[in-house]
Amino acid sequence: MRLAERTTHDAGAPAGVPAEPAVHTATRTTHRRRGVNREGLEAGRRSTRALLWVLLAAAMVLYGFPFLYLLFTSFKTPIDTIAVPPTILPREWTLENYTNALGRSGVLASFVNSVQTAIISTVLSLALAVPAAYGITRYKTLSGRIFIMAALVTRMVPPVAIGIPLASMMAGAGLADTPIALSIAHTTISLPLSIWLMSSFFEAVPRDLEEAATVDGCSRLGALWRVVIPVVSGGIAVTAIFAFLASWNEFLFALLMTAIRSQTTPVVIANFQTQFGLDWGSMTALAAVYSIPVILLTLLLQRKIVAGMTLGAVKG
């Protein structure tokens, strides 16, 4: 227990800065007097801080505006959604789009399918990526290096090139139109990224920790389970989020591999665009509802994600 707690601090988690050496504190004080920015937005010259805040606000607007526009559009009346020129805020607020979107047949089932598919795909991805990444980083063999490069190369293949054969294979295996088939397909997308992410997290964990655990009587697997995994738990959370998002938002494989019983919500959202017109209101309403679980998940795991991000940046 103590070992695990100690290693979390040693591995560079941001919370682990309780006892800085006196010399560092003195140096920082000196730099502050000279106006050197050592702590981001909280220090430095006022003009620099202002500039950084402006840049940060601009970046937030740039990233946040499309989602806000989607959100506002979901409350617009039909004619407002197609206004020329477009308006940002609704002239008249309405919930009718939400009623239409959620009342459409198949929407609830598609939500259930999306949750099923994303969870299975995430678990599969982690179950394969964690041991793979651990093996690659700890054994450092030529085949491991080739494997991790090959995993990266698979990310470069356009999904449509493998989507159609994959759909045929799943149909041949009797898995047509099932969430498990789609989960496996989604794992092919998230697995390479998960392996790479987890590799960087494992690299950050000093070997000394495992050796210490071995000295204390742990087997290699015991050291992995009792020492390394707790240290990289933030990284696992980050990887899980990415794997979940990759499945949650995936469209092409869902389009090719699902029909009646396993259709996921991205396909249902796309169905609002037909050859005869685009129902902007309902489409944006469903998209807004569909983004809620992801936002909640991110908020829930926020601390782990921040810890995980920092973890990857520190070498043991």
Binding site: G106, A109, Q116, A176, T178, I180, S183, I260, R261, S262
Partner: peptide
């Protein structure tokens, strides 16, 4: 996670949208 996955895997035999397509 393991429990959820087991339940979900069992559920995937039919999916939520209805009969097999």
């Amino acid at each position: 996670g393991g429990l959820s996955t087991a339940v979900l895997l069992a559920a995937t035999a039919c999916g939520a949208g209805g009969p097999a397509a």
